[in-house]
Simulated assay, not measured.
Amino acid sequence: MKARLACADSFDLHFQRERGRLRFKALVCGLLTAAAIGCAALPTRAQDKAAKNAPVETVAPEEKPAPYDDRLARLSEIMGAVHYLRNLCVAGGEPEWRDAIQKLIDSETANEPKRKARMIAAYNRGYRSFASVYTTCTPAAATAEENYRNEGATLAVEIASRFGN
């Protein structure tokens, strides 16, 4: 009987050791699983932080050309030419041509940088085209200025009457 108890105690002790090992293994497996899940989530969190810190890219609204953009660019070019010629031929100069085109550009192209750049380029093209030819006021420069003013007035009336409110 004593042998049986010793055998049972030995078995019980062996069983307890095995149970302890199994619990330890289960605990280690659980910790490893939790660590693996936690590590898998880390890159996502890092990406989330990077996304939060990254600058937000705003998409500019698509610029649709107005049906009168070509005429408006021509008017801008004419105003550039007239501005140069008037300042060349009038003693005190006339800054109102430059101010007028600036107001027109600002009102027409408020949130459209590409349209604004095209209108400014047209104005500068008109200004520079005469700056490269005339350095003093000549009768031809005065005639050109008058012709451009007439064309500009006609074009402004046409744009306003055809496309205005």
Rank of each mutant, 00 (worst) to 15 (best):
R115M: 05
E145Y: 01
G164E: 04
G38A: 15
N147A: 13
Q16S: 14
A122R: 02
D70A: 15
A156K: 08
C89Q: 02
K52P: 00
P61D: 07
R98S: 07
L75V: 05
S76W: 01
R23M: 06
A50S: 13
R45K: 06
T136M: 05
A34R: 04
A122G: 05
A141Q: 06
R74L: 11
A141Y: 05
A81P: 01
D9I: 13
Y123N: 06
F130S: 08
F130I: 04
A36K: 02
Q47V: 14
T109H: 02
R86Y: 09
G80R: 01
S132N: 14
Y148K: 13
G164V: 02
V59W: 07
N165V: 08
N111C: 00
L75D: 03
R71A: 10
A50K: 10
E145L: 04
L13Y: 13
E62V: 15
F24T: 08
N111K: 08
L5A: 12
W97H: 06
G80S: 05
D48E: 15
L42H: 07
K116I: 03
A40F: 15
A34S: 15
C89A: 01
R23F: 14
K116S: 11
A117C: 01
R128G: 15
A144K: 08
L5W: 05
Y148P: 01
R128I: 07
S107T: 09
T44Q: 11
A110E: 15
D70P: 00
M119C: 03
E145Q: 14
P95Y: 04
A153V: 14
L5Q: 10
K103T: 04
L31H: 04
L13W: 07
A35P: 00
E146D: 12
N124V: 13
D48S: 10
V82M: 02
R128Y: 10
A66Y: 10
N147T: 14
S107R: 08
A81M: 06
Y123P: 01
I101Y: 07
